[in-house]
Design a protein around this nucleic acid. Structure first.
Lengths: 205, 205, 205, 205
DNA sequence: GATGAATGAGACTTCATTCAT
DNA sequence: TATGAATGAAGTCTCATTCAT
């Protein structure tokens, strides 16, 4: 896919130093992005913030947007890792508990860096992040479908795909928009409760 | 607010010809935006598509982003107008009917121009459209709260603000994301049914 | 042809002012080229020397090398115009006179700007000037073949194409190299005499 | 002369391994030059093609253009060596034979690597190769003058210097341009015959 | 000797904005 | 009022060169 190649990293950093530089560039990019927004996040500014020269950035990334694509990917991986680690679903959990753990884990994942979450979602052009976003979306979709599979008898509809899409879009939108406009609310139990209730009522028979 | 001043139109076009030019510029901007994306939507290209000179654009807009802010505002007004016209809530309507009419009207409004909707949402920087988006959000919020007020007894929670926010974010996200990724699905009754069901179950006692 | 499009001018300057700017840019480019060579002939330097801004250059030329392609073209046209005007071949002229007038005219054309001639030939990459050079070469080739046609009986070989190629390459090389290394020699009658003699003996029976 | 110092090799590679590396770099440079042209012949690409690191290149050459200067010099030496070896002038040879052997040897020398010949002549800036080119030119000049000396009585003019310059420029130009535009023609006897004829008639009484 | 990651000056080019006509 | 040529700041990216390992 053209987009994939266009934004794919130039060299895989295998050595420790290289990996450190790579991550430092993404850290710098995230900071500049948060502080100044996408339009002002120039390669020069990212280099300066990172403490490397522009040339070094181009050792690792073929062009500017590849940095943001990589940053989005790393952010997705970080969120997904925390999500998985934080869910901890047991075999005895009932549907409500599973939904609660899932939604809780999503909120926790977002709280890793709400500002980065917002700016990646709202300021970086979709063309840059679309591929990564679609992939994460699919992973969440699969997780949702898995839940339906486990609680087959209790699930209302059998168009799991459509139900999962609504769940994912709705849950993500609520969490991401709250993260952007009122991040403190992410800590409030009401938000979680309401989301759990919305989803439980939505999927249950 | 600085932002407001920065993006506010340079002159109120009262005369008919002026208003026609103004709208033509927004039409041109919308076309370029859809065809080329925000990054390639330059003033020159907009001027060319519109059939006027760059100079003329600057007669009506103080800077480039003011065009997109105005376009977002016009798009919001168009959607809202169709939304209101299409809802037609009667006094005898029960809660489900009201929700259905509301959601149906939102979908119809989006269908006015799904591509414009997508590109404004996903490609134009949040800083440009944030003000307009917040305002529309508030209008929808008020509409939701009004519904709760009318069906007081049947409503589960009394934190109407929070409930309304979840409703708005969830509904918008579902419709907008579907509009972006699979616009034909906007015509499917399932989508509407599922959304109505999600919201009805969410708000009812 | 890709090359043609790559170096073809961006807009045909039809208005007087535009044509003046266009020529000014080529003048500036020629001066920088002569003074600093191709490698140091940057768009910034050309703009500064021309007295316009870089942006103006890019109104007329799609990229840097298009400037040099256009300069080569203009130089070819200037030389060809003077060449034609200066040859003035009469119907009574014998072969030697025709050759002398031709060679004389070529030398005169080169003397219009020997330094520009040298730098375009030796410093600007062939990829930039090849198209123009080939075209001029063909015009001279045709002129030579025409001479052979007029003096059919006196001409040694009947492979006019090959003969013409040798004539053109040899004559051009001598004149251009002398122009580059010892321009004053262009004014010496010996050079012309020797060239005429070389060509006359070469083509005659 | 500044130029001479600028492009002179950093260290005289006396040891066998060092000389091997040196030649490998020139080979790599020649390949990149032929495949990509001067503008894209970067030190990184040359290093990669050669199979060494950039650092190693800078052990042997003070800067990039010194590589091409050295390559031009080596190419000149190779051509000259073959030229001398191939000419094999006997004491009994008459003028025509000497000219024929000379021209034949020049053509053969060019055929060693017509593409390298073209790219060095047409793509590498004159400033880089001028010194080497001038030196080779002088050697050929001396060879021509020597011929005139041997056949004193048969030679038309006594301005041997001028005659030799015309011969050299004309012969070189014909061969080099044919090598660039139609290398197969170098094998055709007509080309050689015509060149011999042109030169013989030019210098003879 | 060799390596190649890092540097950073500087090249090309775009495009929002102005202003003389 | 409209035009569009001109501006020039600012952005992206390359690549010759260095130097710590």
């Amino acid at each position: 896919m053209a987009t994939k190649r266009r934004f794919s990293p130039r060299k895989q950093p295998t050595q420790a130093r290289a990996r450190r530089t790579w991550n430092a560039v993404l850290d710098g990019a995230a900071q500049v992005l948060i502080a100044q927004g996408y339009e002002r996040a120039t390669t020069d500014r990212i280099a300066e913030r990172t403490g490397v020269s522009v040339g070094t950035i181009y050792e690792y990334f073929p062009n500017k947007d590849a940095i943001f694509a990589a940053l989005q990917r790393r952010w997705n991986e970080q969120r997904w890792a925390l999500f998985e680690e934080s869910r901890q679903i047991d075999l005895e959990d009932d549907l409500e508990t599973v939904l609660r753990k899932t939604i809780h884990a999503r909120i926790e994942a977002t709280k890793l860096n709400p500002k980065l979450n917002s700016v990646l979602m709202r300021d970086v052009p979709a063309s840059v992040t679309a591929d990564q976003a679609a992939q994460l979306h699919d992973e969440f979709l699969a997780a949702s479908v898995q839940i339906f599979g486990r609680f087959k008898g209790a699930i209302r509809s059998n168009d799991w795909q459509l139900m999962a899409r609504l769940m994912i879009h709705a849950t993500h939108a609520v969490i991401d928009n709250i993260a952007a406009s009122e991040p403190d609310l992410l800590d409030a139990p009401e938000l979680e409760n309401e989301l759990v209730l919305m989803m439980q009522r939505y999927v249950e028979n």
